[in-house]
């Protein structure tokens, strides 16, 4: 009777055979991709945290600029404008602009920034009263 039913049980142990245990790389690909993605996210988060952690000692003029900008609640465009002004006045560090009221005088702006007189005036008011 068993032989008669051989078609039902002949592949019963195939899954346990040694030759059947080999894992193909393609099978792991989704996991690898997920791990890489996770690492990238963690790295990005870490970098973001490090970039904005002002409690760590160091010597980073850009970071100081960000620290000051955050303290003054400056938006992206204001920060960019200040950086442009620092560049225009050839300041050693962008943060120096926070102690240079002369750099924020609307009447002395370089030509290419004349269009932003109003923003500069507002920034001057905000930073130096």
């Amino acid at each position: 009777m068993l032989l008669a039913q051989i078609s039902k049980w002949r592949h019963l142990g195939d899954g346990l055979h040694r030759s059947r245990g080999r894992v193909e790389l393609v099978d792991l690909l989704p996991y690898i991709l997920a791990a890489l993605l996770l690492t990238a996210i963690l790295f990005a988060l870490s970098m973001y945290h490090k970039r904005n952690d002002f409690s760590q000692p160091g010597n980073d003029p850009d970071k100081l600029f960000r620290e000051l900008s955050r303290a003054h609640n400056l938006d992206f465009s204001s920060r960019r404008l200040l950086r442009e002004l620092a560049l225009a006045y050839q300041l050693e560090q962008p943060a120096e602009v926070f102690l240079q009221p002369a750099a924020l005088r609307p009447d002395r702006l370089p030509d290419y920034l004349l269009s932003k007189q109003a923003e500069v005036r507002a920034l001057q008011q905000q930073l130096f009263g």
Binding site: F54, N59, E67, L99, Q126
Partner: peptide, 16 residues
């Protein structure tokens, strides 16, 4: 504004 700047510069651990 200036006061804020000076406070940040005074307390910052950034040597810059």
């Amino acid at each position: 504004g200036l006061q804020t700047t000076l406070e940040v510069l005074s307390k910052s651990r950034n040597e810059a």
